[in-house]
């Protein structure tokens, strides 16, 4: 049974259509990555999945009693709000000390429990967010550009942690990222998004799909050179239409 199943859904953001024709599902234990240029609707899709946004068409079905752990893109904590890591973990549900400590340990943030949130480094902060997401023993862990602002070793270490967690806890992972090469290597399935689902499948398949190349092929040489060398063949079974190159530059 799928954890989340989206059928023929469309999503709007302040009145204008952002995503159309979305069919999506994620099963237990899967790692799925969503990639796409800025403004392609990645965050909108996640918001639709966590329930912050209702589809204007179609349906979003969550499994009965689905436990979601959500790691937001960035969390700005106002400096006027005092907040220790321990207190943060008890929001909104109070958790016992040993549960909090265990979650921090799992997320690789064991020693931070008494620190102020505002005083943490970027990497420490993301690990605390991850620990909080693990508290509910989630069946589905959702990460929205969770490594934004981390350097490469930092984000690589973070993703290793995610893979370990998937192995030990058996939860499905859904993530959005720009760091294509790091993320895609760890994924079971990749979804390439640009206002709709352009193509999806195994990482190697998507990386070499013409639709994906049309979106990311030029202008992002650094990140994608890797794939261009490894997979220099093309598949002919894409969705068969051209993408407006301008979307790449869209904010």
């Amino acid at each position: 049974m799928s954890l989340i199943e989206i059928r023929q859904a469309a999503f709007r953001h302040s009145g204008s259509p952002v995503l159309t024709n979305v069919d999506f599902r994620i099963d237990s234990g899967e790692i799925v990555t969503v990639v796409g240029p800025n403004g392609s609707g990645k965050s909108t899709l996640l918001r639709g999945i966590i329930g912050a946004l209702s589809p204007s068409q179609g349906s979003v079905v969550r499994a009965e009693g689905l436990r979601i752990g959500y790691v937001p893109q960035k969390l700005h904590i106002d400096p006027t709000l005092p907040m220790t890591v321990r207190r943060f973990l008890s929001l909104p549900e109070k958790v016992a000390d040993d549960v909090a400590e265990q979650a921090l340990e799992r997320a690789g943030a064991g020693k931070l429990i008494d620190r102020q949130m505002a005083g943490l480094s970027g990497g420490q902060f993301q690990r605390v967010l991850l620990a909080r997401a693990l508290l509910s023993d989630p069946q589905l862990l959702i990460l929205d550009e969770a490594t934004q602002g981390l350097d490469q070793p930092g984000s690589a270490a973070f993703y290793r942690q995610i893979e370990d967690l998937r192995r030990s806890m058996g939860c499905a992972v859904l993530m959005v990222s720009h760091e294509l090469h790091v993320v895609m290597a760890a994924s079971d399935r990749v979804i390439c998004l640009n206002g709709h689902i352009c193509c999806e499948g195994a990482p190697e398949h998507v990386a070499s799909a013409p639709e994906y190349r049309a979106l990311f092929g030029s202008g992002t040489q650094g990140a994608l050179a890797l794939y261009r060398h490894e997979h220099n063949h093309t598949h002919g079974d894409g969705c068969g239409h051209e993408h407006d190159r301008q979307t790449e530059a869209a904010p």
């Binding site: 966590i50 959500y70 937001p72 907040m83």
Partner: peptide, 12 residues
């Protein structure tokens, strides 16, 4: 408090 921290965290 949760909603004050972050609206999406609250939704989730």
């Amino acid at each position: 408090l949760t909603a004050t921290l972050n609206p999406d965290l609250a939704y989730a």
